[in-house]
Amino acid sequence: NKEHILAQKEVLTPIEYEHYVKHLFDIGEITKELYIELSS
């Protein structure tokens, strides 16, 4: 869920976080809207 993803932002580097969010989007775990929101 969104809270879990945002928690990852605390422990990952910005680049790792971007890759993580992109991966979730690629596998269909999150919607495009959520992907855009989380990567901003």
Rank of each mutant, 00 (worst) to 15 (best):
27 I>W: 10
37 E>M: 06
20 Y>T: 03
1 N>Q: 14
20 Y>R: 02
33 E>K: 07
7 A>Q: 11
11 V>D: 06
20 Y>F: 12
11 V>Y: 11
25 F>T: 01
4 H>P: 05
13 T>S: 13
15 I>H: 14
28 G>K: 04
26 D>C: 13
32 K>H: 14
12 L>H: 03
4 H>D: 13
14 P>E: 10
19 H>R: 13
26 D>H: 09
7 A>Y: 03
9 K>V: 05
19 H>P: 01
9 K>E: 03
31 T>A: 08
13 T>C: 04
9 K>M: 10
14 P>N: 11
19 H>G: 13
27 I>R: 12
19 H>Q: 14
28 G>N: 07
24 L>Y: 02
32 K>L: 15
18 E>L: 11
32 K>I: 12
35 Y>K: 02
15 I>D: 15
21 V>P: 00
33 E>I: 06
13 T>Y: 03
8 Q>I: 10
21 V>H: 00
1 N>W: 15
32 K>G: 09
31 T>G: 12
9 K>I: 09
24 L>T: 01
25 F>A: 05
27 I>M: 15
28 G>Y: 03
19 H>L: 15
33 E>Y: 03
40 S>Q: 13
30 I>D: 00
21 V>N: 00
19 H>S: 13
9 K>A: 07
24 L>M: 10
14 P>D: 15
13 T>K: 07
22 K>M: 07
28 G>D: 04
25 F>M: 11
17 Y>L: 02
19 H>V: 14
18 E>I: 10
4 H>T: 13
7 A>L: 08
31 T>D: 14
10 E>G: 13
3 E>Q: 12
23 H>M: 12
19 H>M: 10
5 I>S: 02
20 Y>H: 05
28 G>S: 04
9 K>Y: 05
36 I>K: 11
31 T>Q: 04
37 E>G: 03
40 S>K: 11
10 E>S: 14
24 L>K: 03
36 I>A: 12
35 Y>L: 09
6 L>M: 13
6 L>T: 07
38 L>M: 07
39 S>D: 06
11 V>G: 09
37 E>N: 03
35 Y>N: 01
12 L>A: 02
12 L>Y: 07
33 E>L: 05
10 E>I: 12
32 K>F: 13
34 L>K: 05
22 K>W: 11
11 V>W: 10
10 E>L: 10
30 I>Q: 00
16 E>M: 05
13 T>M: 06
19 H>D: 09
10 E>N: 08
28 G>L: 03
18 E>T: 06
12 L>P: 01
24 L>P: 00
10 E>V: 11
27 I>Q: 15
14 P>Q: 11
2 K>C: 07
17 Y>N: 01
17 Y>K: 01
26 D>W: 09
35 Y>H: 03
8 Q>K: 14
12 L>I: 05
2 K>F: 15
20 Y>I: 05
33 E>A: 12
10 E>Q: 11
6 L>C: 02
30 I>P: 00
8 Q>N: 08
30 I>E: 00
22 K>Y: 07
10 E>M: 06
28 G>V: 01
28 G>T: 02
29 E>S: 08
2 K>A: 08
29 E>Y: 15
4 H>K: 15
17 Y>D: 01
6 L>K: 11
32 K>R: 09
21 V>G: 00
35 Y>R: 02
40 S>V: 06
22 K>L: 07
15 I>L: 13
38 L>V: 09
34 L>W: 07
24 L>R: 01
2 K>H: 06
39 S>G: 04
9 K>D: 01
32 K>E: 12
10 E>Y: 04
21 V>K: 01
6 L>Q: 09
38 L>I: 12
8 Q>F: 08
2 K>W: 11
9 K>F: 05
3 E>N: 13
24 L>H: 01
25 F>C: 04
9 K>R: 14
18 E>D: 10
15 I>A: 15
39 S>V: 09
21 V>T: 05
32 K>Y: 15
29 E>K: 10
37 E>V: 06
1 N>R: 15
32 K>Q: 11
14 P>K: 11
17 Y>R: 00
10 E>R: 08
25 F>S: 02
23 H>Q: 12
13 T>I: 04
27 I>G: 09
5 I>G: 02
22 K>A: 07
